[in-house]
Nucleic acid binder design. Sequence first.
DNA 1: CTTTAAACCTGCTGGC
DNA 2: TGCCAGCAGGTTTAAA
Length: 273
Amino acid sequence: MPEGPEIRRAADRLAAAVAGQPLLRAQFAFPALKRFERLLPGSRILSITPRGKALLTAFDNGWTLYTHNQLYGVWHVAGPDERPATSRSLRVALETRRASILLYSASNVELWRSDAIETHPFLQRLGPDVLEATLEAATVAARLRSPAFRGRALGALLLDQGFLAGMGNYLRAEVLFDAGLHPGLRPRDLDDAQTTRLAEALLAIPRRSYATRGIAPTRRMRADYLAREGEAFRFRVFQREGAPCERCGTPIARIASQSRPLFLCPRCQPARW
DNA sequence: CTTTAAACCTGCTGGC
DNA sequence: TGCCAGCAGGTTTAAA
């Protein structure tokens, strides 16, 4: 569940299951964290909140769990003493009387003093979270025009968590298509109308993904996921190479940008105009 | 300054 | 069917 919308949906599920609950048992598959299996139980889980693609689980004894799923981490909610049938490796288990939350496969797991969590090197560098409800298009537009960002190619900028936290590779492609912009363009190449349109897409597309059900963790799981969850975020260019553009019928192209696949409509997203 | 490439973490996919 | 290289929705680091 890699990008901002999927992480935030996971946070919602986890918080609904265990926020406010006293911790009965903790398990960590990392030697450096073993001591917390004794230290954390007895405290209460205060909150589970996303920061871009990272997740912070705060306990009322002054500790905060930092997790980042990278490409492959996945959270499960299970009943007490229950473990899902999966071949993945269990990395974190937090058990309460009501439910357990289980993190599989992730390698990025740390415990921080809550009063120092803001000094975490990853969190410290994050820009505003693109899914934060208070973030406005005018703020994003101003950010696009700022000296720090106006000279960067959009393809790279839209993956930079220091620009907007929570963006990711599928969102980048969908935002650029929505705004009708080529990834090689820079904010300083855009006129006011284009800047505004891009700023609005940068908020609207992630919010739409979050409001629908985001996307399935893997392609294989997609069919099952859709059957279970109902409507999902619909890609217009991502992973649609060769399919006709819904606006103009031109086949969607696949290029590489930042060593990552990027899908676009060559006609709707021209490099020059 | 910005961009690029490689490395790391782990699991899935596609091809043989 | 089984195996394995390469790829993936991420991020950091070093080098260009």
